[in-house]
Computed example of a mutant assay.
Amino acid sequence: MIIVSPLVTVSVYGQRGLREGIVYAMIAAATYFFFQSVIVVIHEHIHSTTAFLLGRMQDPLAIVWGNPLTLDGWDEGVSYSALYTAGLGTNAAIIAVMPLLFHAVVVTAGMYLLLSPALANNKWSFHLFFWFIIVNLMELIAYMPLRAFAGNGDIGNINHGLGLSPWVLFFPGTLLILIFLRCLFFRILPRANVIIAGDSQPVRYAILFLAAFFVFDWRSIFRILLLPPSSAGWEIGAIGLIACTVVIVLCRPGLAWVRRAEKLVQGKTGS
């Protein structure tokens, strides 16, 4: 008969829990980057397909391919300057806005699904939809509010094409993002804690840290480390880092409101 002391038992359980957290973090990161690569291709093809349907592009497949991980070098292949010169600013705005509408619809429908009973008893289906929503929400946040006042890119082309002040899109766009963020971190995250993590605290922390890091655009956050404060884009990275930190502090596992929300989920799902 082998007798294991309580200290050793706790130590082994802690090591196992930490290992579970690391393994899930690796799975979640791989899932995120796979979906990110898929979404960037879809995003650019929505631009090009819209331009094709408007008669402003000959081949909707003729996008410029870039790096699927860093997302550098991608372009839809649409000549916005030519559209402006031809007085087709409205067409330019329609082409620019369509992928953003796609992401907004996907996030809305996906959040509804994650909050429904449909995925409550299927851990890996919930996992896939959760990170797919994270990728699409990140795409929205990367433009609004982080690049709401940019003179180029999708938001810049929408404003230029329609002759709008950046403030016109900033307020409703930012409000929509805040609604999405509240739903994600205060309603869906406790469900993920129960359905995905179960009784594993390390997995809970992995979900929270990665979700916050990715949703606020990890590329922008890294700008703080790679660029001097005077560089263009450093402010965007600072905003992303602050938002990421605030979410982690407010939604960390063990807080009273998080435990209450998890108990409600457990009561509804029978977990």
Rank of each mutant, 00 (worst) to 15 (best):
R252K: 13
I196P: 02
R252Q: 08
A206T: 04
S231Y: 08
L255K: 14
K263P: 00
C244G: 02
Y205L: 05
G233W: 03
V247C: 00
Q201K: 15
R204T: 00
F216L: 11
E262Q: 03
L241I: 09
L250S: 09
R259V: 09
R252G: 07
K263E: 15
V203H: 05
L226Y: 11
W218G: 05
L225E: 06
F214K: 05
L250P: 06
G254T: 03
A197Y: 03
P229E: 13
I224M: 14
L208R: 07
G198Y: 05
C244S: 05
D217E: 13
I221A: 03
L227D: 12
F213Y: 14
F214E: 08
L264Q: 14
I242V: 15
E235V: 14
A238E: 03
D199P: 03
V203C: 03
F214H: 07
I248E: 04
F209D: 07
G240W: 03
R259G: 06
L241E: 10
V215Q: 00
R259Y: 03
E262G: 00
L241F: 12
A238R: 12
A243R: 03
W257I: 07
R204L: 02
L225G: 15
I239A: 12
L210N: 06
W234C: 06
L264A: 13
A256N: 10
I221Q: 15
A238S: 09
I224L: 15
V215N: 08
A206N: 00
V215Y: 08
I207F: 01
R260M: 08
W218I: 13
S220V: 09
L227G: 04
I248D: 02
F216Y: 15
V247K: 10
G240S: 01
Q201C: 06
D199F: 02
T245S: 15
S230R: 10
L210I: 02
I221H: 10
P229G: 04
I207E: 01
T245N: 00
C244K: 01
S220F: 14
V247Q: 00
L255M: 06
S200G: 03
R252D: 01
R260I: 02
L225A: 01
F213S: 10
I239V: 12
T245V: 04
Q201Y: 12
C251S: 07
I207M: 09
I207L: 13
A232E: 13
G237R: 11
R260T: 11
V249M: 13
D217M: 02
S200D: 07
I236H: 06
I221D: 10
L226G: 01
W234T: 07
V249Y: 15
S231W: 10
S220R: 14
